[in-house]
């Protein structure tokens, strides 16, 4: 465990150092992403001004909260574990070889080895929203942090499960993109706008509901049962995704594409 924490910390430092090699690109991507997220909240503000009250049971402040959680959870996942969304590429080109040759947990080694610059913008944007709109509300901060952490891990697990299909299908990049798009769409709109069947999906196969909407419920009315059930569900989903990855890894067939590590 201690060894893998050291590897995780080392990858984080190297990823950040690698990103900072191109300062202008880093700053523009991170800032650009935060700006892009702001436009969505602006449109939501206009919608609430026109309609007033609540949309599907969500007030504007509720929407701000789920946006903050979703943005930071997405950012955390893609800052720390960006390779989950890149797994198909690693499988198809044989880049997993380098990770399999090293004496540590393949999953930790693979997931931590990459970062996405723009995700820093997503990560900090969630905190900025919280600072502006929920500064004096400790309960909101508690459930925001709970949501950002469990959501970050869950988004990683969703990416991992979808891209692991590449071991079986050859190329599951489209499935990976689709899973991530569903996750984002399920995260940034009130969950009651979706049909019951879709909501079932949001709390099972693509558990964006657990990542974002449960923290809002807990903020609105704390329930220890719901908090524990959500944590248990998230842990079970992550364990299943990890198990699926290791089963798929047995089918890995490598490759001889010329590879450099960025």
């Amino acid at each position: 465990m201690k060894k893998h924490l050291r590897i995780f910390a080392c990858y984080f430092r190297l990823n950040l150092a690698s990103a900072l090699e191109y300062r202008a690109s880093f700053i523009s991507q991170a800032f650009g992403m935060a700006l892009s997220n702001s436009t969505f909240l602006f449109f939501w503000w206009i919608a609430f001004q026109q309609i007033g009250g609540a949309i599907a049971g969500y007030t504007y402040k509720d929407v701000l909260f789920i946006w903050a959680v979703a943005s930071s959870a997405y950012g955390l996942s893609h800052v720390l574990f960006a390779n989950a969304a890149n797994l198909t590429g690693l499988i198809v080109t044989g880049e997993l070889d380098a990770f399999l040759l090293q004496p540590c947990c393949v999953l930790v080694n693979v997931l931590c080895a990459r970062t996405i610059l723009s995700a820093y913008g997503d990560l900090f944007y969630g905190f900025a929203v919280m600072l502006i709109f929920f500064a004096g509300e400790p309960a909101a901060w508690l459930w925001f942090l709970y949501g950002a952490l469990t959501g970050g891990v869950l988004i990683t697990a969703i990416n991992l499960a979808a891209h692991t299909l590449s071991f079986y299908w050859g190329d599951a990049s489209a499935m990976g993109r689709m899973a991530l798009e569903f996750t984002i769409n399920f995260s940034v709109y009130p969950d009651k706008i979706y049909a019951p069947a879709v909501r079932a999906l949001m709390y099972s196969v693509i558990p964006a509901g657990i990542a974002v909407h449960v923290p809002l419920r807990l903020f609105q009315a704390f329930s220890p049962g719901l908090a524990l059930a959500a944590l248990g569900g998230a842990a079970a989903y992550c364990a299943a995704a990890g198990f699926f990855f290791y089963r798929g890894l047995r089918r890995y067939e490598s490759g001889n594409v010329i590879v450099t590590r960025l």
Partner: peptide
């Protein structure tokens, strides 16, 4: 065991080799 695959680098392209050695030291304890 140690490996050098001519087609696959274990060094980080944008960083000095010393940084890659630090990561490898963590991986190899």
């Amino acid at each position: 065991i140690g490996t050098v695959f001519g087609q696959k680098s274990q060094l980080w392209l944008h960083l000095p080799p010393l940084d890659s050695f630090t990561l490898l030291a963590a991986i190899y304890e």
